[in-house]
Each structure stands twice: as structure tokens, then as C-alpha cells.
Design a protein around this nucleic acid. Sequence first.
DNA 1: ATCCACTAGTTGTAGGACAACTATTGACTA
DNA 2: TAGTCAATAGTTGTCCTACAACTAGTGGAT
Lengths: 245, 245
Amino acid sequence: MNTSAEQFGGRASLTRRISDDIRRRILAKEWAPGEKIHSESELSTTYKVSRVTVRTALKTLEYQGLVDIRHGSGTYVNDFGRAIPTGLNELRSMSETISELGYEPGMEYKIADIRPATDLEIEKLQLDSPDSVLYLERAVLADGKAVAFSYDTINISSLPSDVVEEMKRGSVFASLDTINSRPIRALAEVDAVIDKNIGWGSQRPEDDLFLLLQQVHYAGDGEPLMYSRTYFMKGRFQFLILRTR
Amino acid sequence: MNTSAEQFGGRASLTRRISDDIRRRILAKEWAPGEKIHSESELSTTYKVSRVTVRTALKTLEYQGLVDIRHGSGTYVNDFGRAIPTGLNELRSMSETISELGYEPGMEYKIADIRPATDLEIEKLQLDSPDSVLYLERAVLADGKAVAFSYDTINISSLPSDVVEEMKRGSVFASLDTINSRPIRALAEVDAVIDKNIGWGSQRPEDDLFLLLQQVHYAGDGEPLMYSRTYFMKGRFQFLILRTR
DNA sequence: ATCCACTAGTTGTAGGACAACTATTGACTA
DNA sequence: TAGTCAATAGTTGTCCTACAACTAGTGGAT
């Protein structure tokens, strides 16, 4: 099946692996939007798992907005096209998202320092006063063009130093993956800002207008891992949110 | 149990009713954040339903970010208390959200007309060309103070005329409730805009800066019900999104 | 042409069983 | 004394089988 979860240990639950695979098949257009996918019994035999597991997997996809499960009728692929998989509901790294949109992701590092935490960072990351943090300022690139400027603070108090060194150059999420502590939840806040001090280079907007995504990422045990402010430039990125009842 | 679903017909599934009730109990602080709630078997006996039903209900709450289910250990209440019910993940009317934040909601009507649909509206609402729509321009009030300006287009092609008349004055969501066709899904897009033509009155911002929430609401059968653009004034509203894997 | 009982197929819920995992306890060891 | 580890009780994950509830289509009766 080769899910992303399997790539770092194969610890994902059976339900998760099934869910990931059906999701992949839907995004690969195995079924057209509006079309009915295989029944739960059929899927359970082909995957060689119980119907309970398939049901749980499908419920996840339903909540993600990918499918619509209709009692007595079947499970249908929703017609939101490629909008959903790039939405804000799913927690993904910027690189992953850009890559899924069909662009070549990139990062341009401006600052990568270890320094004492500020008061704001101590509060957001629930740190002790003397703690040091890894602070990054980067431009997020899609096909070589800047789409956002990111100001990230990473809680390194419980990270090995070689992993921290790696983060100074490569993807933060990928580095966290190697020690199996990728964030599983983030609380994000969106705002519109006009700020002359944000961004750099020739590609920053003249009207100083940005869409700010401010978020704290949490590990599985609830510990805050990263506090990041990402300033998106207007029109270069689409922010989609699926809202459900 | 008195869930919102029961109030208009009681057609909600058993799982849904259980899920709603446990959610209510969590938000009512029956268990403190971080605390372990009753086990699945215990819940299944007290609710007099099968463990399957309880599990499915809890899975929903987990996806909504309310609880954390840990294999072999138990189900724990997450610490995002106030963020969840007012976040963008949950589909609620503006009035409901404002009310949950502790303010007195209100609406100031500027325009409420029935007129032919524009090309954009025909596309967003998947209408036939000659269709008429209900168009509203309103200021959203919290404690009498404007927090946003809303430009809404409602698909009235399959609505009785008395309900449409009601919408011209009261809450759109409430009117849709009376005929059991409240939207269950919305696809929202967020953007930052500077626009001199948005808003009115003394409370509109001088810098013309707004956070735009542009969304299409869908009914249970997938039919588009409403296309709305809401322009929020900076700092008067918090946009929270819970992101999960 | 309309209505309606019937039916095959599908999802929803039930109950019982066992596997996999977690956290705690308490005996054993260095 | 402090640390290690096996045993254990409790909890969630998965499986199996069965039936209830619902949907969409079929085909006959009116």
C-alpha cells in the first residue's frame, strides 16, 4: 500500500492504512466524482479485513469531505475535485501541500538560529523561562517563486541535537518524522495584516498586504512542538476549509 | 437527549445522537481537559447501545478534535475547549457563533431583494439561467457593534415562498431549519482584501482592510443552497481552525 | 400511465470474542 | 535502596455473524 505512515515505521493502525489507500485511489480518479465506490463488504474482502475496519476508514474519509455515505444506498465520491486534499483541515507541511498542487516546492533560508525564547514563544510553546529554541525565517517557494514568508519557532527541549542541526537546512516536518514525533494536531488562527516589516526580496507585495496563518503544532502527547507565523501573499495560494455539521 | 437534530424530526442516526450528547457533556465540563472519560463498554451500557455505536460516535469527536483516543489506555478530553465550538471547522451560522462567544448577536439589513441571478451566482449555485435568487446585504452585529459585512445569495428555486419571505427579516439558517433543509456542508475560501466598496456606516475600517470568507453551503443531497461573502473587520473576530492528520 | 408490493443490495446497529496495547502493581535483583 | 521485570487488570483495535433499516429498481395490478 505504501502509505506515508508506513514509510516511518508502519505503526499506523489497520484502519489508517486502509483509509489512506482508499483516499489515494479516489484522488487517483479510480472513481469519478458522484460515482458509487465498491460496497463495504466488497472492500472488506479485497483488503482482507473486517467490514468494521472498512467502515471506520470510510467514516474518516466522509469526515474529510471526500465521500458521502448514504444509508441503504452506498458510498459516493464527492464532487469537490482537487479542492479538498489541499485544504486547511488536513495537517500537512507547506512542501507537501505545494507538491500536491503540482508545483515544485522549495525553501529559501534567511535565518536559522538557536537563541533564548521570547516571552511570546514561552507562552505559546509552554516552555520554561531559560529554554532555547530554534528560530527560522524562510521564504516558501513554489516553482522557484515566493508564495509566503514563514517565521517559525521550534521547541527543541526534547529533541536530539543532530535532528536540530538537520532542521536548519531541510524540512522541519521531515526531520521530526525521523524520530517519529511529527505533529498530529495544530490550532491555527487566520488574520489579514498590512505590515511593512514582513518579507524580503523583490517578490514581496507593494501594498504590504498578507494573509497570516498563525499556528501552534502539537505532538501526539499534547506537547507543543512549533509556533509558526506564515504570511501568505495574496493570490498565490488558495485557502480552503471544509466545514461540516 | 434533546439534540439539535431531534428538534426537527429526530431523524438523526443513533450514532449521531450519542455523539451529540457526549459532545454536549464534554463542553459542559463534565470531564476536565486531559481527563479520561468513561470507557467504551461503560458508555455502551449506560446509553443502552452497542459498543460499535459508541466507538463510531467517539471517532467523530476525535476527528472534531474534542477527544484523543489512545489504544489500550482510554479516551481523553482535549484541551482546546473554547476553540472547538467557535472554530471554522464547525458549520454554524454567524449568530450562533457570536452567541457562543458570549455576545448578543444581531443583523442590520441593508438590502433584501429577489432578483435574477448573476453569472457568478449561476456558476456557484449551479442554477439555470433564468432563475431568481434572494440577495441580502447585511451588517453582522455583536453587542450592537458591527463585526462584519455579509453579501449573501440564496438559491430559492426549491423553497416555498413563505420561507423566502421569512428570510428577508430573520436568520437564514433558522428559516431553512423549519423546512428541514439546513446546510450540512460548506466549502469556504479565505482571503485578505483591501476594498473601498465594502461595508457602510461609521464603523467600517479606514484602511479598507477585510478578511474575506467566501463560501458555498450545500444541503444533504449535495444541492448548493447559498453563496455568501462575509467581510470581517480586523481584530473583531477570531478565525480558529483545528487541523488534524 | 400510475401506483404499489416485492426484492436485491447496501449501510446501520447488535453482541460476543479475542488481539494488541497501556499503566500499574509487586516481586525479584543488583 | 534503587532499579528491573514479569504478571495483571483494564482499555481500545479488529474480527465474525446476524439482523434491522433504508434505497432503488422491478414488475405486476389497477
